[in-house]
C-alpha cells in the first residue's frame, strides 16, 4: 500500500525485460551503441578472416619485400607509407613486410587475448563474488581482502617481471591471458558481490531456501538470471582495458614475442619512424583506438539499456 502510483515506465520496463530483448531494443534506438557494435563486428571479421583477407591481397605478415622499400632511407617507397594495390596499408620500414597483414593478424592477437582474459576474469569474479556475497562469514572476508590487495598491487611491474622469469617454453599468449585475467577479477567480484548481497535479501531467495534449495540451486536458478545484466555490462566495458594492457605489455617488449604480429609492438616500432613514415603509426594506432572505442560505446549503451539508474543519454 506504499505505492504512490507514479508511473515509471522506462525504469520498470528496462528492469523487467529479458537481457537479450533489452540488447536488441538498445541496438535499434541507440545509434552510438549500434556504431560500436558494427565496428566490433568489422574488426572481428578482420581478425577471424585474417588469413583469407591477406590471401586475397596476396600477402602474409612474415615475408620480407625489400623491393617495396626506398633503398636510400630504408623507409617504404611511394606515398603514404607505400599504400598501393599490392600493399593495401603499405609496408613496414626496413623489412617491407605487408602492414595490412600485420594489422589484420594483430587484430587476431588483440581480440584473442582481450576476450579470453576478460572471460577468465569475469568467470573468476562472478564465482568468487557470488559465493562471497551469498555465503558471507570468514570466506567473504578472505575474498574481499584478497580483492583489495590485488586492486592495489602494481600489476604492470609484476607482469614485466613475470615475463622475464617464466621460461620461454610457456606459450606467451596463454601466459598473458592467465596473468591479465587473474589481475582483472577483483573489480568484477566487487560488483557481483554487492548485487548478490541485495538480491539475497529478496524474499524469492528466502523462499527457495525454505523449500530446501541448496547453494548451487540458488546460484544458478535464483541469482544468476538476475545478474546477467550487470555481468554483460561489466564484461563489455572491461574488454578494451584488457586489449590495452596486452598492447602496453607488447609495447614494452614483454608481451607477444616477434614475429607474431601485435598492435602494441608495431606501435612501439613505429614511434622511431613517426616523422618519415607516419602511416606506420597511424594505421595500427587507429585499429587499436577503434577497438577500444567500440567496446566502450557498446558497453555504455548496454549499461543505459540494462541499468536505467545510471543512464546519461536521454
Amino acid at each position: 500500500m506504499s505505492e504512490t502510483a507514479l508511473p515509471q515506465p522506462s525504469a520498470l520496463a528496462a528492469q523487467n525485460r529479458s537481457v537479450p530483448a533489452a540488447i536488441w531494443r538498445m541496438l535499434r534506438t541507440d545509434r552510438w551503441a549500434l556504431a560500436g557494435a558494427l565496428t566490433i563486428a568489422l574488426l572481428g571479421l578482420l581478425a577471424v578472416g585474417a588469413d583469407v583477407l591477406t590471401a586475397i591481397e596476396g600477402q602474409d605478415p612474415f615475408s620480407y619485400h625489400t623491393d617495396a622499400l626506398d633503398p636510400a632511407t630504408g623507409g617504404p617507397a611511394g606515398v603514404l607509407g607505400g599504400i598501393s594495390g599490392t600493399h593495401w596499408f603499405g609496408v613496414e620500414p626496413l623489412t617491407g613486410r605487408d602492414l595490412f597483414a600485420i594489422v589484420a593478424h594483430g587484430a587476431r592477437t588483440s581480440f584473442l587475448i582481450g576476450l579470453a582474459a576478460t572471460a577468465v576474469s569475469v568467470l573468476l569474479g562472478v564465482l568468487l563474488g557470488v559465493s562471497a556475497g551469498y555465503l558471507g562469514g570468514w570466506y567473504d572476508r578472505l575474498v574481499t581482502w584478497t580483492a583489495d590487495v590485488l586492486l592495489g598491487f602494481p600489476y604492470l611491474v609484476f607482469m614485466i617481471a613475470l615475463g622475464v622469469v617464466v621460461p620461454a617454453s610457456v606459450p606467451r599468449p596463454l601466459l598473458l591471458i592467465v596473468v591479465i585475467g587473474l589481475f582483472g577479477w577483483p573489480t568484477h567480484a566487487r560488483i557481483v558481490r554487492a548485487q548478490t548481497l541485495s538480491l539475497k535479501e529478496r524474499k524469492f531467495v528466502s523462499a527457495a531456501r525454505a523449500f530446501g534449495a541448496g547453494p548451487w540451486h540458488v546460484f544458478t536458478v535464483e541469482l544468476l538470471p538476475n545478474l546477467w545484466a550487470p555481468i554483460t555490462v561489466m564484461a563489455t566495458l572491461s574488454i578494451p582495458g584488457k586489449i590495452g594492457v596486452e598492447a602496453a605489455l607488447s609495447f614494452l617488449g614483454v608481451g607477444i614475442p616477434p614475429p607474431t604480429p601485435s598492435w602494441g609492438r608495431t606501435i612501439s616500432d613505429a614511434i622511431d619512424w613517426v616523422r618519415s613514415d607516419p602511416m606506420y603509426l597511424i594505421l595500427p594506432g587507429a585499429a587499436l583506438f577503434l577497438a577500444t572505442w567500440a567496446f566502450n560505446v557498446l558497453g555504455d549503451g548496454l549499461r543505459d539499456a540494462l541499468d536505467p539508474r545510471t543512464g546519461v543519454r536521454g
Binding site: 529478496r202 535464483e222 538470471p225
Partner: peptide
C-alpha cells in the same frame, strides 16, 4: 511471504 513482488524471481 508478505510482499509477493519480492517473493517471486523477476526473471522466472
Amino acid at each position: 511471504f508478505q510482499d509477493p513482488a519480492s517473493a517471486l524471481n523477476p526473471r522466472a
